[in-house]
Design a protein around this nucleic acid. Sequence first.
DNA 1: TGTACATCAGTGAACGCGCGTTCACTGATGTAC
DNA 2: TGTACATCAGTGAACGCGCGTTCACTGATGTAC
Lengths: 188, 188
Amino acid sequence: MRRSQKDTAETRANIIEAASQILRARGIEATSVADVMSAVGLTVGGFYRHFDSKDALVAEAIETASLETTARHSEKSAGREGDLVALLETYLSDAHRKNPGRGCPVATLCSEVAHGDKTTKKAFTGAMRRLFGTVDAAIGQRSEGDRGQALFLSRATHDETLACEILSAVRERLLEKRKSHRAIRGKD
Amino acid sequence: MRRSQKDTAETRANIIEAASQILRARGIEATSVADVMSAVGLTVGGFYRHFDSKDALVAEAIETASLETTARHSEKSAGREGDLVALLETYLSDAHRKNPGRGCPVATLCSEVAHGDKTTKKAFTGAMRRLFGTVDAAIGQRSEGDRGQALFLSRATHDETLACEILSAVRERLLEKRKSHRAIRGKD
DNA sequence: TGTACATCAGTGAACGCGCGTTCACTGATGTAC
DNA sequence: TGTACATCAGTGAACGCGCGTTCACTGATGTAC
């Protein structure tokens, strides 16, 4: 039966929240619409009153997950710029590794998103940008998400310019880095 | 009808080769056994004469892809140690980004493997180790695959010790790095 | 404020589809004599 | 070396299953008067 506008909005939010956790924990393809709906205590049929398709939900869930984790990180560093210790203790922790469902969506979905549709890629690109921002702030310099991710992140975005930038920036950085490394060691 | 031993071995190799390309291009879940078999010019039914399951094929395909790309990189750098330029021009190139089917399996499958079975994770862990080796050789120092990949790679291995090592090594490295960065800039 | 009716959130069964795997069958290959 | 037979690589149809999506239906909610 019909629900009040408040209830409807609440249900929608619940679906997104549940999806954002299940997707991060199990991956996109391994998560069914029915899984998400039953996690909220509803049946599949009602899903399409809230979303056009599974892809639409995935995009919103990624966005929500990204906003949540970004907020958590800036909260932990409590506004102090360059709080690298706080970031490392949360982001690169075993707790984060073992709890993908509440963690960074970029880390969990990076390679799967490369085969997703455009809406998904767009949401993921937003999440990537936020992650870069967090890392940059903690390190105190531009880092491109600290490099290694370059190739698979460049594949996961729909934005061709960004993809090229990521790769070329990282190439330059690594060369620079070796140069300074050799200078210190007196090699070459 | 029955084939000669030579033909049988050849077919098996063809299946692995085809799978290694299609898997890298489309991802594991998006690649069906039928896709792979028809790429080799055979029908699905015959598949199980060569492999116990799709998972078994995936594991072998990852191994093959990894060995191929590692060989290509050490060939390009022609034995010169620390040939970072050669690695960057191939690994972090737009060509590599746009041709996942012939590229590094670690980059394409990193997040999907985290939800795969143990055989798959083992094969992937081997591929990771080879990638680390390649990067280390080019940079001339231990790099843990140059860091950023830390979190999702730690999730993609079945090896708990390795997972922990990756994370803690990267944490230490980043702290060290900031220290030297600050020393140079005269901050702190 | 009260009433009559259109709207629509949620149900639960059904749809078509593609998947991994199995199976009876065919006939060339390998082997035992 | 020749023959008779067991083996098994590959075929193509079938299996059960879970998926995303649709649909007729129900009844509380929102709205027009």
